[in-house]
Amino acid sequence: MAVRANIPEQNSRRGFLPKLSDRISEFWAKYGIGYLFLAPFIILFTIFIIVPVFTAFGLSFTYYNMIQPAKWTGLTNYRVLFMDDDVFLIGLKNTLIFALITGPMGYIMSFMAAWVIDQLKFRNAFALAFYAPSITSGIAMSVVWMYFFSGDRYGLVNNLLTNIGLISEPILWNIDPKTILPVIIIVSVWMSMGTGFLVFLAGFQNIPKEMYEAGAIDGVKNKFQELWFITVPLMKPQLLFGAVNSIVGSFGVFDVAVSIAGMPSPNYAGHTIVAHLYDYAFIRFEMGYASAVAVILFAMTFILGRLAMKIFSSKDI
């Protein structure tokens, strides 16, 4: 009786394997070619993105100087970051101020510039002028801008302010702690408009003209109503890309700040999170502590990126 009782169970197991193989064959026939084309990206993304992220997360709980084996320290690096490292807190404050000003300002300005230029006749020439700064090195652009903010009387800004009587002596723009961060913000906003502007301009050009004609029939009266009721809802994918790109760029400022104020800057007025990470990773070679800084930066950008995805979700389109 026991043997007979096991026969249905054995038959069910034998029948399960053909069903599983049939499902695998059906899945491969339907999606196999697509996954083969996607495989190079998945492999490279895993090797150069996913693995380093998890490696940095693991090293953030250790003391690792690249010579000796990593030594487990638990939450010590994070405790030191927020309780004992005053320079990191200054860099965190500077980065947040920079991101809160540069991110929204560059985002809005690039969107409005793309909206205006899309309606002009020679938009390709204007698009090239706006996009050029984004493909230029931040260090090179900082050198150009330092001609404007030079600390002597021959600097263009100092010369202008002196001629109109607003100042009696030159302002040391890249030395005075009060003016270092504003100068970095001005240069970064000007440089951040290129990529977002190009994406927004492409989004404007991909909107069917029939949508505006239908909007005019439904009561849309001017360009601003077209922008709010038609353009913005149809451009949510481009708006999302621009928002994420703006968040990553504003939190990742480093080369512009170092070129303008040096490293370390006076009173750490131009110090950022990335500069702090660079200091501990490639100058002091304390990779465990630098990994903790990188994890904090990753968490901040990830949370804000998810928030942007919630705001600009295109599921309703």
Rank of each mutant, 00 (worst) to 15 (best):
L36C: 08
A132Y: 03
Y278P: 08
R284G: 09
F298H: 04
A292M: 09
S137E: 00
G155C: 01
F224W: 15
I47Y: 10
V3N: 14
G242S: 05
R306N: 03
F241N: 03
M287P: 01
N159C: 08
M146W: 00
S134G: 03
D85W: 06
A269S: 15
F200W: 11
F200M: 14
R306S: 00
L100Y: 06
K178R: 15
A29L: 10
R123Q: 06
G165I: 02
F204I: 02
L198N: 06
S134D: 02
G151E: 00
Y107G: 10
F41C: 12
L59V: 02
F111A: 09
K93N: 06
P52T: 11
G106E: 12
P69F: 01
V253F: 13
Q238F: 08
F302H: 00
P8K: 02
V248R: 10
V199M: 15
V295P: 02
L239A: 08
F298T: 09
A39T: 01
F229A: 09
G138Y: 00
R13L: 14
S60F: 06
T73L: 14
T136N: 00
L59R: 05
I247S: 04
N267S: 14
F251W: 09
W145L: 01
F126R: 02
L81I: 07
F149K: 04
I7Y: 13
W228R: 11
A127P: 08
M191S: 07
E226F: 07
G219S: 00
G242T: 01
S265I: 12
M263V: 07
F282N: 10
G32L: 09
I108H: 10
L181T: 07
D84P: 05
M109F: 15
E9C: 11
K121E: 12
L36D: 00
N11Y: 11
K315E: 12
M112C: 12
T195Y: 15
G288Y: 03
F45I: 13
R123T: 02
R306I: 08
